[in-house]
Design a binder for these strands. Structure first.
Lengths: 231, 231
DNA sequence: ACCTGAACACCGTTCAAGT
DNA sequence: ACCTGAACACCGTTCAAGT
């Protein structure tokens, strides 16, 4: 699948004559680059999930040979690391959230983090097993500052940060994978029907059927922050 | 763990003569069975991780052809589901933990859950993406009862359960994957050295170098339970 | 009822080479 | 400096068959 190169020829004949590009053919494909590879990897991951990203498919989308990728990245792991961090950027709280309101700041950052991961469901499952990139480190740095400002003791700071990390990761991972087909939901629902006698309490509270994920996330986060706040 | 049956033959010669097995050859291998497949899958996963489990290797260990497995299980996913639940059994709290102490009960179950998953590090990453098996449902049922008994309002019950689930899953997943080689630790340590100026706060608190995972888990769980307890 | 080998359509990466 | 195809050693699963 080396190139569309000559494929553009005669598609629409009204294109103005392009100034001759030194190396690059007049085709649509810009040259390969780390950035292009990462952006395309994210597209592919969004479309096909973790298992859907293969070096061959990635090269196909980029209109290059498979092995050309290896000039720009070390290996597939590298692609995962780069794609992951690229998705976790944080632009900071909106101005509305006054900077004296540590709780508002923290909630905003964590909800934004979760939302971004849910928009790229593969990212949540990758994050805990990869090295931490700059974007996620920035988020932790911000968290640390806010909690300090909130009066969390230095001795409790790391525990507090990890607790919030754990909560966000657990919630997002679970939500991301339960967001499957309706068929799956129906199957689960049916499996639970005749389980009532073995698990009466969770059956009664409809634990596995409640689907207000956003509300539950926010409310539980509230409880956790209550527990973390200096009494 | 179906049987050692004929496997004992000739190990120590003082075994009494075994009655002749009808079909099975005198070889060491008991016949294939779902249980044997699952037990061997767990061994393989423990030894080689998620990517180490392949149908071919599994068949090898079992001394059978690859395709023989497919008589007993539907596919590889099925093997994962069975292996996963087999590892999550809970035998209940020890008698020491008086049953009036809801907090002690909850902490015991959650620490046992985490410990089991850490003993089989592949299990944590599988749990959120697979259907919930009977053993994990029992744990949730128990959790639900304890929290009810503790006075958590019915309207908060599901949120409380999911919060604890999230915390345990996040903590265990993170711990399981950061438990890598010493080389990795050294590399991370070095990467952080010259990051101090970009992330001063997490650098100062040594967030990424602290390795009292067990202590942090327990302490953070304490904070969360504080937040969940009716005030 | 239980087990099998051959075959198919895939993988990631090494290597030696091309421009 | 950048890109390439062929080759290697793997995958999970379908199929048609054997006992």
């Amino acid at each position: 699948m080396a190139a569309k190169r000559s494929g553009a020829r005669g598609k629409r004949s009204q294109r103005v004559s392009v100034p001759p590009q030194p190396v690059q053919e007049a085709s649509g494909e810009p040259p390969l680059s780390r950035d292009r590879i990462v952006a395309t990897a994210v597209e592919l991951l969004d479309a096909q999930g973790v298992d859907g990203l293969t070096m061959r498919r990635l090269a196909d989308r980029l209109g290059s040979g498979v092995m050309s990728l290896y000039w720009h990245v070390d290996n597939k792991e590298d692609v995962f690391d780069l794609a992951l961090d690229s998705v976790l950027e944080y632009r900071g709280p909106p101005d509305m959230v006054v900077s004296r309101d540590w709780r508002g700041e923290v909630v905003h950052m964590l909800e934004d983090w979760r939302a971004r991961m849910l928009r790229h469901p593969w990212s949540a499952s990758l994050l805990p097993r990869r090295a931490l990139g700059p974007n996620i480190l920035s988020r932790l740095e911000m968290l640390s500052k806010s909690l300090s400002r909130a009066g969390v003791a230095d001795a409790d700071l790391n525990v507090a940060i990890w607790s919030l990390w754990n909560y966000v990761m657990g919630a997002t991972l679970t939500r991301a994978s339960f967001d499957l087909s309706d068929d799956d939901r129906a199957a689960a629902r049916q499996r639970l029907e005749h389980l009532s006698e073995r698990y009466p309490t969770i059956e009664r509270s409809r634990l596995l059927l409640d689907d207000d994920w956003d509300g539950a996330f926010r409310k539980g986060l509230g409880f956790l922050l209550d527990g973390l706040s200096p009494r």
